[in-house]
């Protein structure tokens, strides 16, 4: 092999320039450039991945205000929030009493009624069955309300009670209570 010139000594594997622990200057260059390129690619990649998250205009529609005044006791309305149905039910005294009484029943997902409402006559629920996402029946007077007087999911037969808790059927959890607050006595803001 011919005598290596000065350039190959500085740039090459550099048998003569090896560090005592066996590393070379080229190892450092490889690691430094890989780290630099990798960081750049990861940061750019994040911009692309994040572009698939909800955009500003979608997030801007993330809250919905509901006027409660027209809802008579025993009635329920369905409003859309983030593209999903939200059930707002004006519960009767009888339904409230039943929900409270069942706090001590054998519940698949135990939760007292008091934890599920802010004002006990107003029950606000995400109208999405916790099994596989169907919309349960029970909003209209003619609907089947299931064996517990709340909601009944026609897809796979889940029964919910007057507090929206799962009582029987394949659904694992109670109907979800969305984040909401009372703007005043007759209006709530969901989200």
């Amino acid at each position: 092999m011919a005598q290596p010139d000065s350039t190959t000594t500085a740039m090459g594997e550099g048998e003569g320039r090896k560090h005592p622990d066996g590393t070379t200057r080229r190892d450092f260059l490889y690691l430094a450039s890989a780290a630099f390129a990798g960081t750049g690619a990861a940061l750019t990649g994040w911009a692309f991945i994040h572009s698939m998250n909800p955009a500003a205009d979608v997030l801007a529609l993330a809250s919905t205000e509901v006027n409660l005044q027209p809802i008579a006791p025993g009635q329920a309305i369905t409003v859309t929030w983030r593209g999903k149905p939200v059930f707002v039910r004006h519960r009767t005294a009888e339904e409230i009493a039943k929900a409270k009484a069942d706090d001590s029943a054998a519940l698949p997902d135990p939760q007292p009624d008091s934890r599920r409402v802010q004002r006990e006559q107003w029950l606000v629920l995400l109208g999405v069955c916790t099994h596989l996402g169907c919309v349960p029946l029970g909003q209209k007077p003619a609907d089947s309300k299931g064996d517990y007087g709340g909601w009944f999911c026609p897809c796979h037969g889940s029964h919910y009670d007057t507090s929206g808790r799962i009582r029987r059927g394949p659904a694992p959890r109670n109907l979800e209570v969305p984040t909401y607050s009372f703007v005043n006595d007759s209006n709530i803001r969901i989200g």
């Binding site: 994040h50 572009s51 955009a55 500003a56 205009d57």
Partner: peptide, 13 residues
Amino acid sequence: ERIMRDVNYGWLI
């Protein structure tokens, strides 16, 4: 315009 204003990093892409 929505890509430019609302989509996350839409302007960059």
